[in-house]
């Protein structure tokens, strides 16, 4: 197809200022249009590329939408049973202490079925990096209520909205684990705008640099959208996320250099 506004004279390899990293496998992602997983994957791979540690990195993917992350990330990976990624990562890091080890998990995986593994890996201060994608819903199984689903939020198993009296409250697992002494760096980010993406990438870089120094567990939550599960367009879902998710899951650093950051009180 002829491109109307192409400036063909500058389309030369030496003028490329951004392209998808080769550490992303060149195949279509299985994610829905507009889903933050793809961006989170790419930022992680960009950091590995910039640090030149891909050959020393072992990743663990979860069960959930990103179960096939190992098909997209061009590094050695293991697919864990549902919720068990931190247990795998614990053993891998202990057995390969000079390697970089990360888990990539969703909210159901990390904060429901895998709560015990998450908390104990954090509490032991394993020198691993946990990347936690929180979209407040079980995307892969068809939009069921997640541990992080907001009060009143509709899902296929809370069709009239999450009733906290009978269904429990959303679990702020990131704040919860931030209080554990084994955890060194905790931050909450997003990937829906260029600025947020840049901050997320910086956070991932910081976490992996800290892993090199054996500082303890680093935990990055990425609040993301699930336009299919939320039944919105991608653009609507990003707006809804800003208006509803961010007030509850406030973005920013929660623990830095092993010290908790005082967050402004919300109502």
């Amino acid at each position: 197809m002829e491109e109307q506004f192409a400036k063909t004279e500058i389309r030369k390899p030496e003028n490329i200022v951004y392209k998808k990293t080769d550490l992303m496998v060149d195949r279509p992602l299985s994610y829905c249009p507009g889903c933050g997983h793809g961006t989170a994957h790419r930022m992680l791979m960009e950091v590995l590329e910039e640090m030149d540690i891909a050959d020393k990195t072992i990743g663990v993917s979860p069960v959930g939408c990103s179960v096939l992350a190992y098909d997209f990330l061009n590094i050695d990976m293991l697919g864990a049973a549902h919720g068990r990624a931190p247990a795998l990562a614990t053993a891998i890091k202990r057995l390969w202490p000079n390697h970089f080890v990360f888990t990539y998990q969703g909210d159901g995986d990390l904060a429901a079925i895998g709560t015990a593994e998450t908390i104990h890996a954090c509490n032991r201060g394993e020198n691993i990096t946990i990347i936690f994608i929180n979209n407040g819903i079980y995307g892969m199984t068809g939009g069921q209520m997640a541990p992080t689903t907001l009060p009143g939020m509709r899902s296929s198993t809370s069709p009239y909205g999450r009733d906290v009296a009978t269904m429990g409250h959303p679990l702020k697992i990131t704040e919860l684990i931030s209080h554990l002494p084994g955890v060194y760096y905790v931050t909450r980010q997003a990937v829906h705008t260029p600025n947020h993406v840049r901050k997320t990438k910086k956070a991932i870089r910081k976490a992996l640099e800290l892993q090199k120094e054996n500082k303890g567990l680093c935990f990055i939550e990425i609040v993301s959208n699930c336009n299919s599960g939320w039944k919105m367009t991608p653009v609507q879902s990003n707006k809804w996320m800003e208006e509803n998710m961010f007030p509850f899951y406030q973005l920013g650093d929660i623990k830095v250099d092993g010290k908790l950051i005082e967050l402004p009180k919300t109502s």
Binding site: I58, L78, A80, A87, L88, A91, I92, R94, L95
Partner: peptide, 25 residues
């Protein structure tokens, strides 16, 4: 390496992690 895990569920998945890297677990 010897590690006391938080449960048998964690133990067997630690085995899975270690074994997946070629280690004898």
């Amino acid at each position: 390496v010897v590690l006391q895990a938080e449960s048998e569920t964690a133990s067997i998945n630690m085995l899975y992690g270690g074994a997946g890297t070629g280690k004898m677990v």
